[in-house]
Simulated scan of single mutants.
Amino acid sequence: MKHLLIIYHSQSGTTRALAEAVLRGAVTEPLIEPRLVPAMEAGVEELLWADALVFATPENFGYISGGLKDFFDRTYYAVASRQINLPYAVIISAGNDGTGALRQLQRIAKGYPLRCVTEPVILVGELSTEGLAASEELGAAIAAGLGMGIY
């Protein structure tokens, strides 16, 4: 059994809905145990449990959310020497274009190191059926890749 950790931060509920859609997609893969955890509750234990990660964040002032940044701040030094090199994917709920948040998340992930294995899903504006569908597809895709041993 492989473990997929979905870490999210949401204040309005939009990013949580996108993260829940990732979970719905991931549970379609029988060899994967997905876990959805708020960023403020996730820590080193969850990170070490995971075989792959999905980060879901709103874009705040062109950056990732403070909650997700807090997760990175609390876990980086605890796992830095382990070179965890996990595959990850990104969901961004953006009011602007999401590129600033994506760029910052990629820079942080490089330091762990983590490796991005899918194109990001960036939802600009209000929650939509298209955004939910894209998030669910991302969850199914990363779970299938993990289940097949691609990453």
Rank of each mutant, 00 (worst) to 15 (best):
T99W: 15
F71D: 00
V121D: 01
I7S: 01
Y76H: 06
R24W: 09
K110Q: 06
E29C: 05
D70K: 07
V90I: 15
A141Y: 02
N60V: 14
E29Q: 10
I7D: 00
H3P: 09
I150P: 12
R115Q: 10
T15F: 01
S65E: 03
Y77M: 10
K69G: 01
T118D: 07
G62T: 06
L102F: 10
V44M: 02
I32W: 02
F61C: 12
H3M: 02
L5G: 01
M148T: 06
E130P: 05
V117R: 00
P30Q: 13
I92E: 06
R115L: 04
K2I: 04
A50K: 02
P87D: 13
I91W: 04
L146Y: 00
I6P: 01
S135G: 15
L68M: 07
I32T: 06
E136V: 08
S128E: 13
A143Y: 07
N96H: 14
G139V: 02
E137D: 13
A42R: 02
E46M: 07
A141H: 04
S12M: 10
T14Q: 13
E137R: 12
L86P: 14
T57G: 04
L123K: 03
G125M: 10
I64D: 01
L47Y: 04
P113L: 06
E46H: 08
Q104V: 09
G131Y: 12
K110M: 03
A141L: 06
A78F: 07
R35S: 06
E130A: 15
T15A: 02
I84W: 05
L23Y: 06
R103C: 05
Y8K: 00
L86H: 10
M1R: 14
R82E: 09
A101S: 13
G111N: 12
G147H: 02
H9M: 05
G66V: 03
T57W: 01
E119A: 11
V54C: 03
Y151S: 06
V121T: 10
